[in-house]
Write a protein that binds this DNA or RNA. Structure first.
Length: 222
DNA sequence: TAGGCCATCTGGTCCT
DNA sequence: AGGACCAGATGGCCTA
């Protein structure tokens, strides 16, 4: 888990722009040796040069330590932001799980299952509305023309739901490949009570076959 | 024990 | 310049 914290290697190269190094140079604390106070007038030019070399060496070590600290704190901050970002993403996924009709208490949908089910659920709801509109339009025609016989009445609940799936699958509106498979072992069983609770009113109001929505939500990516 | 899922770290790139 | 976003890497946990 905390691999990077424990394995942090200060010698490893991190790509920082030159400007950051310039920033760093501006952050250098003034060296006590740079004031000239330690340079005695009695020192020879040779001794002066050696002293300068020593100072530069000491400064370089100190600068590297400061640079290391700056890099480390930036990394820690970035890690923290990234962690927060992922937590927010997971929170949103949890909210989505709560909204989806298939949400058994004992099992938790994985991330990918959540997204796929949400996709299918939206599609199924759209189809429900479309069918509801169709049914409504036909009813109005029958009211205007009492003897009118609907040429293609929607199938009654329990009728050939498979044909509905084959003619109105999400693949018609999406480039993704779909199948009506329910064989994914990682998918939790659909809770029908929970599922129909969300769409019950729609079904009763518009005579939408319930098994249509039920099977529609089972449609999965492959 | 292999495989799936997940959290976290990390460095690169994009955006504001 | 700093933050957001992304994808790859890694290791832990769980289950069949």
């Amino acid at each position: 888990m905390d691999r990077a914290c424990t394995d942090y290697d200060p010698s490893s190269r991190m790509s920082f722009s030159p400007s950051e190094d310039e920033d760093y140079s501006s952050l250098q604390s003034p060296s006590p040796y740079s004031t000239g106070a330690l340079t005695s007038p009695a020192q020879t030019p040779e001794k002066c040069g050696e002293e300068k070399k020593k100072r530069r060496g000491r400064n370089r070590v100190k600068n590297e330590a400061v640079l290391h600290t700056i890099k480390k704190t930036r990394r820690v901050k970035a890690n923290d932001r990234e962690r927060n970002r992922m937590h927010n993403l997971n929170s949103a996924l949890d909210e989505l799980r709560g909204i989806l009709p298939c949400f058994p208490d004992d099992t938790k949908l994985t991330k990918i299952e959540t997204l796929r089910l949400a996709h299918n659920y939206i599609w199924a709801l759209s189809e429900t509305l479309r069918l509801a509109d169709q049914t409504k339009a036909k009813t109005q025609v029958e009211l205007v023309q009492p003897g009118y016989m609907s040429p293609a009445a929607p199938p009654s609940p329990g009728s050939d739901a498979g044909s509905w799936m084959s003619t109105a699958s999400p693949s018609s509106s999406s480039s993704s490949s779909f199948s009506a498979s329910t064989s994914n072992p990682s998918s939790p069983a659909m809770s029908e009570d929970c599922y129909y609770g969300h769409t019950e009113s729609l079904f009763s109001l518009h005579s939408i076959p319930q098994n249509f929505m039920h099977s529609a939500c089972f449609v999965q990516y492959q």
